[in-house]
Write a protein that binds this DNA or RNA. Sequence first.
DNA 1: GTCTATAAGCAGATAGAC
DNA 2: GTCTATCTGCTTATAGAC
Lengths: 190, 190
Amino acid sequence: MPAALMDRQTVLDKIFAAFRTYGYEGTTLARLSEATGLGRASLYHHFPGGKEQMVREVLQLAQAALQRDVVGPLEGTGTPHARVRRMIENLKTLYANGEASCVINLMGVGEAGETFRGELSATTEVWLQGLERTLKAAGIRAAAARKLAIDTVVRIEGSLVVSRAIGDPSVFIRALGESERELEQALGAG
Amino acid sequence: MPAALMDRQTVLDKIFAAFRTYGYEGTTLARLSEATGLGRASLYHHFPGGKEQMVREVLQLAQAALQRDVVGPLEGTGTPHARVRRMIENLKTLYANGEASCVINLMGVGEAGETFRGELSATTEVWLQGLERTLKAAGIRAAAARKLAIDTVVRIEGSLVVSRAIGDPSVFIRALGESERELEQALGAG
DNA sequence: GTCTATAAGCAGATAGAC
DNA sequence: GTCTATCTGCTTATAGAC
């Protein structure tokens, strides 16, 4: 039953890509229409709340992806080496080897940042607290776990910004390598 | 001679603040007019190239500020402790204790990022190579100096993103503390 | 050097046909 | 569920008076 030419999830993925490439103000309905292949009016049929609703759903998607693809592998089974490895590989994919930006960064800019304050904070905390939880479960003390979680996210966000600024995604790749070593060691020693 | 109600430098400072708060697309001429107190037409008198010219001048300003307030203190006289201390204090001021964003991050978003690719890369390299130069002058090997320079900028950019995302500027302040220790130790041992 | 007025186009959003 | 057509307001940018 090809009732819908495109699954809602597929449409939302394309919308996600647009917002994290062009930012909130830079993502016009014309661009969203081109990206999804849907007319502007059709977009309003699926998202009556317009861009604002789209971003809220995008941030929900980001939250789910962080839990599933980043925190999940770390909480899974296997040696610390294998679990950290899976997380790092998924981060590489999520951020297109350092060529993509993070929606947490882009949606935090300007008035959008105020509009989506709660969602942005919640999405980031899923990531931070997910890392923190796993580290504590491995025997690391609370303060050290929170610090390592923040350091990890800070390094990823920062390396994406610097990669983009100097046009060199290897900054992101190297940063992932450092977080990999750091987390593996922490989990191994925990 | 109060020929100009406001010095060009003062006007540009307010334009700078607007762009790094709202991003390129979010900074409308209406906002720039409000921020500077100049009518839209007056802005075009001073910047015939419009927003694009303004951003180019803003990035020049950022480049000068990074050299003067960040790299400069490190290259100055005094103990490693004192020089690093001055740099860190200036970074705190430049980023309003973690409440402000970095223009290198915001101007890299979307189409603006392509328009200003060269200027963004040049501005970031002033920072990176300035740190690198000082570290090498202190006896640190080239590869380690470049790595530490990148780590420093990555940590600052990342901590600003995370601070904004969770609404907690202390992430930025703590990150500065870590860079302070790291750089002081590197310069002391160099 | 600043202003008012205005142009031309694009933004987000809606109505209603099919 | 998608479309065409349309509306209103805001966008960048310019012309020309003072």
